[in-house]
Design a binder for these strands. Structure first.
Lengths: 202, 202
DNA sequence: GATAATAGAGAACAAATAGAGAACATTCAA
DNA sequence: TTGAATGTTCTCTATTTGTTCTCTATTATC
């Protein structure tokens, strides 16, 4: 179990790694977490090592490794550090305030489930073949939402919703090679709304 | 059975755990449930321990463990049910075997972090303005990987990597309105590889 | 009314944590 | 080779925190 100081130390190391591409010195860590003593930092590092979060190469300068396989030791909060904003042509810009993403907030919820997407009908909305979408189960949706709809009780589809003033329901793909189709409202049953999306490149 | 105060205490601890990743101090619990006395909190903790809801590590600061069996409503491993595969024009197809997505496997790892993407340079790869990409920290990458690169030690960018036989490094945007640029290898420092992606529609 | 259970305040002490900084060993670059 | 920077091990101090008490108040029950 990490103390708050140890956690702070660990986060600083992660962030430093990202920005510089190499590990910080003990002095830099000390400054980064707001203390003066290298000895104290060393104590925190020893503790992080015994939690298998890092590996210390003895006596090496900047000899800290982040351990990839360490998730079992921080099991409780599904968070990942959010280090900043990346835009082409600029240095990575730090984000004040929010410094981590809580996956629980992001998607976990009793009324949510996942679907794996096949096909390219939502390609131009950034939803590609093989992606996973997180659906919030609900029977209504707003204009412009991306929804899971059941047509005639059988055919399921992922489309953007638009209701016309005359009552017709448009299900619009985000792919210029595919056509929007209009349905009578009673043929379309809304199953849920897309609230998130995941993609794995591994 | 628990008294109302004990229940309140237990809920506060659960919530604190989810948010911070470590246990609260007695003082924090006291404030959290609206009293002043650490001694009283300690009494509640003893009671929660004898109900096997928590374990107290004696004399440890923040030495409270939530007992997993008593905690079934809060999953330790964040998962979301994966209901099937959706393809335009077909019913939702069930997936045998895998029926839930483990978010910990998906992204959480000590050497991973998140970056928020600004701009449209990777649009055609389905990475849109505002998306969050999960980066695995590493200094090497394969041809075709989407990487975070530092150019001349300053400028950070998200591009697809291609190495030419003559040693030059191509950083290719996925946007037909932007141009691929070739760099001498010593100007490009690889910071990490994109291993995942999140998008929130909320 | 007596009794027990619940709630809370707060004092007193022991122990853990956070931090400073000295002293020495080791690296690493000039 | 040498010196500065860095890692490592210590001892010391202060503060916070956990723990155990005793005391008071309220409420419900017999």
């Amino acid at each position: 179990m990490l103390t708050p100081s140890e956690k702070k130390t660990f986060k600083f190391i992660q962030q430093y790694f990202m920005e510089k591409g190499y590990a910080p010195t003990l002095k830099e860590i000390a400054q980064g977490i707001g203390i003066n003593s290298r000895g104290v930092v060393h104590r925190y590092l020893k503790s992080l090592e015994s939690s298998h979060l890092i590996t210390i190469l003895p006596n090496r300068k900047r000899g800290i490794h982040l351990n990839p396989e360490a998730n079992e030791n921080i099991p409780l909060v599904p968070t990942i550090p959010l280090l900043g904003r990346i835009a082409a042509g600029h240095p990575i810009e730090a984000i004040e305030g929010r410094d981590e993403i809580n996956l629980a907030d992001f998607i976990m919820n009793a009324d949510r489930f996942a679907l794996q997407v096949t096909g390219d009908s939502m390609m131009e909305a950034g939803i590609l073949d093989g992606d996973t979408v997180i659906i919030k189960h609900q029977n209504t949706a707003n204009n412009g939402d991306i929804i899971v709809a059941l047509i005639d009780g059988i055919e399921a589809t992922l489309k953007r919703l638009k209701r016309l003033p005359d009552g017709m329901v448009l299900l619009m793909p985000e792919n210029k090679f595919m056509e929007t189709i209009a349905y009578e409202p009673e043929r379309v049953q809304i199953q849920g709304v897309v609230v998130g999306q995941l993609r794995s490149y591994q």
